[in-house]
């Protein structure tokens, strides 16, 4: 990627909060892009997890609001029970449409809309999960010229999700969680 990406999208499922808690707090205060996240979660979960992650991080971590404008150095987490989508004008949209891959929010929905909105100026990150959600989204990101990073399934709490993506696309980076924050900094700062 030869120019600054407009955003990073990140999808994670089983083992997700541990993975996010190991990665997000490592990102520096002046992280120059927004990071938009889908974490599959139980429908009734409150945002205590979001608040905990926010307190542990240099960046602002918040639940995504509809029509919210994306800001650099902010981490947006999809609310339970809504799909999260990215618009070309750098805002977020929500939807209560049917679950995709049995999930709402779905990683594919976020990734595909972000790929359409940002094309080559996008980084997609797919981490641990016991689901195939996210693979088609990574394919779309790749086809639109974006950069793809997949967690090394050997290091994942649940390997199915990263493995499904690796089976479908040739990822630009396959990495362990320990190196992820550094890699994101290198690619963006």
């Amino acid at each position: 990627m030869n120019r600054q990406p407009k955003a990073i999208v990140l999808g994670v499922s089983t083992g997700g909060w541990q993975a996010l808690n190991r990665t997000i707090p490592e990102l520096p205060e002046h992280f120059p892009v927004p990071l938009i996240t889908v974490q599959h979660m139980a429908s009734s979960s409150d945002n205590i997890l979001v608040k905990t992650l926010d307190q542990a991080s240099h960046l602002t971590v918040k639940e995504a609001d509809e029509k919210e404008t994306l800001n650099k150095g902010t981490v947006y987490i999809a609310p339970a029970n809504y799909h999260l989508m990215v618009e070309k004008n750098m805002t977020l949209s929500l939807s209560t449409g049917q679950p995709v891959n049995f999930s709402r929010p779905s990683i594919d929905v976020l990734f595909e809309t972000a790929a359409d909105a940002f094309g080559a100026s996008l980084i997609g990150v797919l981490l641990t999960g016991a689901s195939k959600d996210g693979s088609l989204g990574m394919l779309r990101i790749k086809n639109r010229g974006g950069l793809t990073i997949v967690q090394d399934p050997k290091t994942a709490a649940a390997p199915l999700m990263p493995q499904s993506a690796i089976d479908l696309i040739e990822a630009d980076y396959v990495t362990g969680l320990d190196e992820l924050a550094n890699l994101l900094v290198e690619l963006t700062c």
Partner: peptide, 9 residues
């Protein structure tokens, strides 16, 4: 309508 969603549908 919000474009991302309508386009998807």
């Amino acid at each position: 309508y919000s474009r991302a969603s309508i386009k998807r549908r």
